[in-house]
Design a protein around this nucleic acid. Structure first.
Lengths: 192, 192, 192, 192
DNA sequence: CATGAATGAGTATTCATTCAT
DNA sequence: AATGAATGAATACTCATTCAT
């Protein structure tokens, strides 16, 4: 991948995360990436294609950057869930509860009117969920028999996305922490 | 409240919900409300003030329109939670999983760069949560002693917001239903 | 004159002086005067008519407020010129060289495209010049025979307006003081 | 310099001179220059930056276009002053006393609320004054010993700016001619 | 592949003014 | 005389995109 294209993707990813898709102008991406407008349209069909490129890139990064390190750092499969959530908490904390999950931000803003983008957002969610499901599956002998790993993984994801949303709205970590505490209680009840 | 102002609020509420805040142009609001540009700025200081008006209006509507009917239709306090979630499901279903919670849509898009709006989003979440907490509190003798009504109400909210987000991203109701099923299981475990 | 009309005139006079005619919006005048838009158009035909009202008011004020006090404070007719210029200097000084002669500000901005206003600006200049000419005339026996009082009065006025312009452009009183020093020298040469 | 940028500068210079800064809309400049709105903001940061560009351009033009021809046409240094003033008189005459000094017009309108512009206006005045001072300096042996070339040059400038202002307000050349006659008398007295 | 000028519809907002009450 | 909502053209400026070099 050319350096220019890479710089565009990283800059766009950051700005879409910080400001959202519509609030981020192409001119801002170009300026901050140090790229000319002509070059953007050489590498991407337009702003939406750049967004798709960003979501592809997130998908590639998910295992090596997001879930892989959690697996390396924590061997207990159920505990990995809470280490992962703790990492998102750390991002919220270090940014004053401004930056949460980049996919979640885009999901609500872009799903409705950009049909070509929605599958990529869904794919990111699906892979995140699949990794967490694999962890739960590894702990299936500690869980009640009727626990569905895929379903519980989705519940982890909805909790995280909802928790980030409320933490951003409040401007404090409290909603995030309360939501995660509820989730932990739920997992404990399922392991009783 | 004047007719013009009311029409602006209702039109803006609908468009912000359907398209998001940034993707909705003032010109579109004016055209669909049948209002001249000058009149908007007679009633509101600007687009952001209009958004604040919308969020104030949502707050006023919450009990009479959202939670009140649930209380009228269902007497079991815990079951009310699932009736309420069912109503959001119905909105998703009738719009092809496009329209979910109007507050949640705005929370992620606007929290970061519109500091004057964030408290109003938080207030909407807080009041929703307070009503649900009051229901849980009414059922406290059926719940484990250590259940915190406020905390559990927040968990209901994060589940709902996360569930709507995933249903919109997928374009189907499945994630919503799976999340709600998890939540129901959680409540059942707390009533054992 | 009604209180409302008076307040409009005084507020408009101040704002036109501070910001200029085009840069002052009617809405600002109304807000700062505490008057409704309907009332303005009851008393004046429009913004330009308000400006004409201001210029009429300046003309009324000229003798009682501008030149009268100079005559009361200084008996030497030639010295009165420099007392008068000193008063304009004081206004420049107390406003950081921002506010000079209100008529001069408007003359350049409005003469070209508001033909109904120009005669009023000219009348203000003419009356100012007439008063100064009367002072010079009182000192005619101390001046060279060929000194034309009207002509010299105009020279005083051009010096003052040019001096204010340069002081505003520089942001210091130096150009004003230098110009007045030149003028004093000129008067001295004419009294030799 | 690109053709587009040049056309913008020349058109803006003309319109700012004819109508003033605030009374000239960006749309008018664009229409008369035959330039698209986007292009203006490619070359200039905004309307004020365009004004700064105009003032820079005036500064560049001052010697080659304004004072240079005077030096070529008239060898007597003191007489050059009156040739220069005569050129401004010709501009007033050919435009029905509407167009005077483009810098003076802007000085009063823009000095107060556009701090970034003021130094450029001052620079134009300063350079004009410096050229005239150099002429006076060349005639220093014909002038009284205590004549300060810089101070007298400023007096020439204030006279000219004040004279143009009054000629525009009156709509005739008479105030200009009277002011210049006074100035000529002053110079004669200094050469006695 | 890069450059950067050009495009022109679109943005939110302000303008002076009118008018029904 | 006063009120304040309504009017809609005009304001300065930004948008994503195109294209000749």
């Amino acid at each position: 991948m050319s350096d220019t294209k890479d710089r565009l993707l990283q800059t766009a990813a950051r700005l879409f995360h910080e400001q959202g898709y519509h609030a981020t102008g192409v001119a801002t991406i170009l300026r901050e990436a140090g790229v000319n407008s002509g070059s953007l349209y050489h590498h991407f069909a337009g702003k939406e294609a750049l967004l798709r490129g960003v979501l592809d890139w997130y998908l590639d990064q998910l295992r090596p950057v997001i879930t892989g390190p959690v697996e390396a750092a924590e061997s207990d499969p159920l505990e990995r869930i809470f280490v992962l959530l703790g990492n998102y908490r750390a991002m919220l904390e270090s940014t004053g509860c401004v930056l949460g999950c980049p996919i979640g931000n885009l999901a609500l803003e872009v799903s409705a009117d950009h049909p070509a983008v929605r599958p990529l957002i869904d794919a990111n969610f699906a892979q995140w969920r699949a990794v967490v499901a694999s962890w739960i599956d590894q702990a299936r002998d500690r869980l009640l028999d009727d626990v569905d790993a895929e379903a519980l993984a989705l519940f982890v994801l909805t909790t995280m996305e909802g928790a980030i949303m409320l933490a951003r709205a409040r401007g404090t970590l409290e909603p995030f922490d309360v939501a995660v505490a509820n989730l932990r209680r739920h997992v404990e009840l399922l392991t009783a």
